[in-house]
């Protein structure tokens, strides 16, 4: 079996088996949140891990996806599923437009430019109150899936439904990202990550490939935002905020930004940890910061890849 298929198998097994260990319905909510975060983080793996470009503004695209689900059904009469697609189309278009000039920047400069983009989107969402409801947020219509299933004679709780739905979308997203890794585009992205000059010499259109990676990762973020909005039935501009962007990058880096499974692992830890730490919530940020510093110093590839390397190294002895 190829490593790609093994990764997907492990992921699917974990998603399916985890509910057997849930002591209460609350864990479905945490599971669904983990999957929704993992979708956005998988997009960042393509951008940061494969192509080596940083973005500190991806929450902005999550915001577009989320508000598309709140606004399109009300103003355009679209069903929520079509609103998700509209959100991804808008995010992709914006990423393409903005990505063209700003992906010429490198390192810190790219980071700051994407940061600005994210902040702009979040400011628009909180200031255009007549459209977006302002800082208090706006209600999101029901996806209608639960009602549909009930009509088909299958009663299912909201927690279970969103666990299943977000889990399925996450596995699909991981599958696409893993496919991309070994495709010509994926190889081109990894080549330009290593050295843009060398990649260009090999005949790779560096600007075009960077732009593709940026657009694809924006689509992942947008879908993640849409699912969050539809699950919560209420969305506020926090979803597009700077802290959400940083959280996404932290999840990716913590788990291992070069690996899809690693990034999902990172999303799991950073989503579940605050729930474990409620007892010392004053120290939550300190603990997260400490974890981050320790990982960067001792496990620079991220948690999962470093652990796997350790294990393999031991096998070889």
């Amino acid at each position: 079996m190829k490593p790609k298929h093994l990764s997907l198998l492990v992921l699917t097994l974990l998603v399916v088996a985890a509910p057997f260990f849930f002591p209460s319905g609350f864990y479905y909510r945490i599971g669904a949140l983990i999957f929704i975060n993992a979708i956005a983080v998988t997009g960042l793996v393509i951008l940061i891990g494969y192509a080596g470009q940083i973005s500190l503004g991806h929450a902005g695209f999550a915001g577009i996806g989320a508000y598309a689900c709140a606004l399109a059904p009300e103003h355009l009469g679209l069903p929520p599923v079509a609103a998700i697609l509209l959100g991804t189309a808008l995010s992709a278009a914006l990423a393409w437009l903005v990505g063209k000039p700003i992906l010429r920047l490198h390192g810190y400069y790219l980071g700051v430019a994407t940061l600005g983009l994210g902040i702009l989107i979040s400011m628009v969402l909180s200031n255009e109150a007549q459209w977006t409801g302002g800082p208090d947020g706006i209600a999101v219509p029901d996806l209608g899936l639960r009602g549909l299933l009930r009509d088909l004679g299958w009663r299912i709780g909201a927690g279970e439904l969103w666990y299943g739905l977000a889990g399925t979308v996450m596995i699909l997203g991981a599958w696409l990202a893993l496919n991309l890794f070994d495709s010509p585009t994926g190889r081109a992205l990894r080549a330009l990550h290593g050295s843009e000059v060398a990649a260009r010499t090999m005949g790779i259109d560096v600007a075009r490939h960077k732009l593709h990676a940026f657009v694809v990762s924006a689509v992942y973020a947008s879908v993640s935002g849409s699912l969050l909005a539809l699950m919560n039935r209420l969305i506020t501009p926090d979803v597009a905020g700077f802290m959400h962007s940083v959280q996404m990058v932290t999840m990716a880096v913590l788990g291992g930004v070069g690996s899809v499974l690693g990034a999902i692992f990172g999303a799991t830890i950073l989503t579940a940890l605050p729930q474990l730490l409620t007892v010392f919530h004053q120290y939550e940020h300190m603990v997260l910061g400490l974890v981050m510093i320790l990982v960067m110093i001792f496990l620079p590839d991220g948690l999962l890849p470093s652990l796997m390397k350790r294990l393999r190294g031991r096998d070889g002895e």
Binding site: L33, G137, L228, N232, L234
Partner: peptide, 8 residues
């Protein structure tokens, strides 16, 4: 003060 956390 984050509605997403509040819901969780």
């Amino acid at each position: 003060g984050d509605p997403n956390n509040a819901r969780t």
